[in-house]
Design a protein around this nucleic acid. Structure first.
Lengths: 214, 214
DNA sequence: AAATTATCAGAACAAGTGTGCTATGTCAAT
DNA sequence: ATTGACATAGCACACTTGTTCTGATAATTT
């Protein structure tokens, strides 16, 4: 689709990327000129027009430093957003997807970019899209995004995503281990806790956040 | 440690943050001038010097748009995060804070930095912290952050933050205007809708998102 | 009240910066 | 050789933008 860039255009594009990595503002035409050792500003302008036409960047003519990178190039600008894979959905009757950290890199999941405060700096955070109304007792509705931290063993009090084997039910509840039983307490205090055998509960992750858009 | 900023300096600092959330390049002196309704560029320069001396930002005199935010301000703002003021809290017995767009830049609210998809590109988005359990029928719990878009008139079906004058109650419900009455429908379909006189309802904003961390 | 400091207003200047114009060079197709 | 598209050079103009100067006003101190 995109025509190959000339060597000079490639150089310029790389220079712009590099420049914006080091500074917070985009370069001027003359920055590019000297940075790429080009003899004239008009040459820079000429090639910028081409880069724009080919969709690599956008320019705001009327403003200085009005260069804006597009495409995958731009994504790097979002770099202190944390990119989180949406590895599947969580619903009443369906098993929970595996929280397999290794697979995340290999597969092309939908991703959401979230600010770090939502993931608490945790490494193994993934997201599930909620389907249906079955989690309302956890104050989670249809379409919400549940952020889960992949963990080995939940602490008492953690809100976890759990799979109840016998009921074939996925649920979000506060987790309390009591001997060989597990007490699951809904966030909504209007609802009753349930107690089940520990062997019957499979915890897939700790809930670190919920995001809802409407 | 840091001397208190004047109102104007606070306004300018917030404007710069906001500007850099929306654009990839820092504002010019004249951007700040018009954005903060200052009559002269020299005033902007004067206050920028103070902000620089107090360590809030750094400037590169020789380049245009050479403003660089420092400290906690910097990290989040540089990238494509939208800075949203948390203008107050929403609770059962307390009146809702005013959604006054003008005040946002002037006052030093707590801010949260959110990715654009949560604000849907809307301009007038602010946030309220939920206190108490009174909004569970809207699937919103204690400590949640409700993102509101400041609007003139809600459309039917919108989820709005409303103040019921007679009950002295703040609530989050779907809004339906029916003649001179308003029907308010909870998100949780287990609960019953209520219908009240339109004159009794004061809508402060449209809910565009909910964020919960735990 | 006088003096000092902080802040603001308006204007002008100078450097920064994008863009247009013309000329030159390259290279493949005719 | 001629043409024409593509790329480059050099320069100048106009707009953008940071800075400075002078003076005025408000707040604070003496």
């Amino acid at each position: 689709m995109k025509r190959p860039l000339s060597k000079r255009q490639q150089t310029m594009l790389n220079y712009i990327k590099d420049f914006m990595g080091k500074n917070i503002y985009p370069p001027t035409v003359r920055d590019i000129q000297t940075g790429c050792e080009i003899s004239s500003t008009s040459v820079v302008d000429y090639n910028l027009q081409i880069l724009q036409r080919e969709g690599y960047l956008q320019r705001r003519r009327e403003v200085s430093r009005g260069i804006e990178l597009l495409g995958e190039t731009a994504t790097s600008t979002l770099r202190n957003l944390v990119s989180i894979p949406v590895v599947g959905s969580i619903a009443a009757g369906e098993p929970l997807p595996l929280a397999n950290t290794e697979q995340w890199n290999d597969t092309d999941f939908d991703n959401v970019d979230l600010p770090p405060f939502l993931t608490k700096g945790k490494e193994n955070v993934f997201a599930l899209r909620v389907k249906g109304e079955s989690m309302v007792d956890a104050l989670v509705g249809d379409g919400d995004l549940v952020l889960l931290e992949s963990i080995e063993q939940p602490q008492n009090g953690d809100m976890v995503a759990a799979w109840l084997k016998d009921r074939e039910e996925a649920t979000l509840k506060h987790f309390y281990l009591e001997g060989d039983k597990v007490k699951l307490v809904p966030a909504n205090s209007y609802m009753q806790p349930i107690t089940v055998a520990a062997a019957n509960v499979s915890v897939r992750g700790r809930v670190v956040g919920v995001v809802r858009t409407m």
